[in-house]
Simulated scan of single mutants.
Amino acid sequence: MSGRLPTHLAVGALVRRVNDAGGFAVVRARGEAQSGAILVVIEDDGRIRALERFRDLDDRETLVPAGPSDSDGAAMDDYWRKRRVSDPDLWVIELMIPQAERFVAETILVC
């Protein structure tokens, strides 16, 4: 048995925490419930960027930038939709809240 939290629980916790804090969080695409990858699209001061949970060779998790940087909404939508074609297990979460990266790190990264 793995000590990792299933993806669907981590995503659910992130969405609840952001919404409870007065922000906006929505699941744009559902992936594989147990071990799907997570891509978080963040809108911050008119900028749209994405972060992805990444597991390195030492089995540590971190957040890495993904997709086009400082893109508009259409470019980011195109990016994640193309990613889902090659990886249907990918979860896509959209957040609109100050300090979104902090919410993501505190919720979905395993210490």
Rank of each mutant, 00 (worst) to 15 (best):
S2K: 04
S2N: 12
S2E: 15
S2Q: 12
S2M: 11
G3W: 09
P6Q: 05
P6E: 10
T7Q: 03
L9G: 07
L9H: 13
V11C: 01
A13S: 11
A13M: 12
L14S: 03
L14V: 04
V15M: 07
R16W: 15
R17S: 12
R17D: 15
V18C: 01
N19P: 06
N19H: 14
D20R: 10
G22K: 06
G22T: 09
G22A: 05
G22C: 03
G23Q: 08
G23L: 08
A25V: 02
V26I: 12
V27R: 08
V27P: 00
V27Q: 06
R30L: 05
G31T: 09
A33Y: 12
A33M: 11
A33L: 12
Q34F: 15
Q34E: 15
G36P: 01
G36L: 00
I38E: 07
I38P: 01
L39P: 00
L39Q: 07
I42G: 07
D44L: 06
D45S: 05
D45V: 02
G46S: 04
G46M: 05
G46P: 11
I48T: 12
I48M: 13
R49V: 09
R49A: 09
A50Q: 10
E52F: 01
R53G: 00
F54V: 08
R55F: 07
D56A: 00
D56V: 00
L57W: 11
D58A: 01
D59F: 04
D59V: 08
R60Y: 15
L63R: 02
V64P: 01
V64T: 07
A66Y: 05
G67W: 08
S69H: 09
D70W: 06
D70C: 05
D70R: 08
D72W: 04
D72V: 02
D72I: 02
G73Q: 12
A74Q: 13
A74T: 11
A74C: 07
A75R: 14
M76A: 03
D78L: 05
Y79F: 09
Y79G: 04
W80P: 00
R83M: 11
R83L: 10
V85R: 14
S86I: 11
S86H: 15
S86R: 13
D87V: 00
D87W: 05
D87E: 09
P88C: 00
P88T: 02
D89N: 01
L90C: 02
I93F: 00
E94S: 08
M96W: 15
M96R: 15
M96N: 14
I97R: 03
I97H: 08
P98M: 05
P98E: 10
Q99Y: 14
A100D: 14
A100R: 07
A105Q: 05
A105M: 04
T107V: 01
T107K: 08
T107M: 01
T107H: 10
I108M: 02
I108K: 00
L109E: 01
C111V: 10
C111R: 14
